[in-house]
Design a protein around this nucleic acid. Structure first.
Lengths: 116, 116
DNA sequence: TTGATGTATTCCGATATAGGAATATGATGG
DNA sequence: CCATCATATTCCTATATCGGAATACATCAA
């Protein structure tokens, strides 16, 4: 294990939601439980692909499955998103107060460039 | 371009913040602008490594640089985190209301398992 | 059991990392 | 111009994807 590649998507929620299609899946699941085929069709992706994404989501705990007869119903378990929300929320005051800062920042930048 | 790998980290903020060390860098930058060397030392990583992470953050617009003499000061631009916060926030009521749902869910699950 | 439907997995190829080491580039002061 | 400090980039390796296609697995119905 000399060199390491990117962190596994299954390592945490941050990695799991980095993939747009997985975000789409999660968004759809807010409407309620659904089988893979449904999700795949609605999102215009193949069933195996949807299954793979769901597996990742399951492994980080953002999704739960339960067998319902022949089908397997996937449901949202959003608790894992809470830490993400909180982490990002820690920057809220920065994107709000940014106006002044950025203005002065941009001025500094222009000045710097003129000096070059 | 038959097969595609994972989305580039430079593609958007979601991918950029999937890396823990980049999150650490962003967190540090809340205290103010800083040069690479500072960040690298504080986070216990090599300078080239920090530079690479900063480049990614710059490319997605979460960070800005400005030359200050011999140094280059990196500063936070948190505006790109706002969409992330909003997306994740769209699940807030789900991780709050989850209690009941999960209780009934778990009951269903137990029942299902007993039936197996 | 067999057939049919729904789902998961495996095999494969192409790509995008992350990290280390070495090196290149940049800017400053004398 | 040169030496020095600060930073960025390149080369390399090992790895972890994502996607398609084919296939295995599972469950139900008759």
């Amino acid at each position: 294990m000399a060199a390491m590649a990117r962190a596994a998507t299954t390592s945490d929620a941050f990695n799991a939601i980095a993939e747009p299609q997985r975000r789409d899946i999660l968004a759809l699941l807010r409407a309620g439980e659904r089988p893979v085929t449904d999700l795949a069709q609605e999102l215009g992706m193949s069933q195996p692909r949807a299954s793979k994404h769901l597996r990742v989501l399951r492994e980080v705990g953002l999704v739960r499955v339960r067998g319902a007869g022949k089908q397997r119903l996937y449901g949202l378990d959003a608790r894992g998103l809470r830490p993400v929300h909180e982490w990002v929320g820690g920057f809220e005051r920065f994107w709000n107060e940014s106006f002044d800062r950025l203005d002065t920042y941009v001025q500094d930048l222009k000045q710097t460039q003129q000096e070059e």
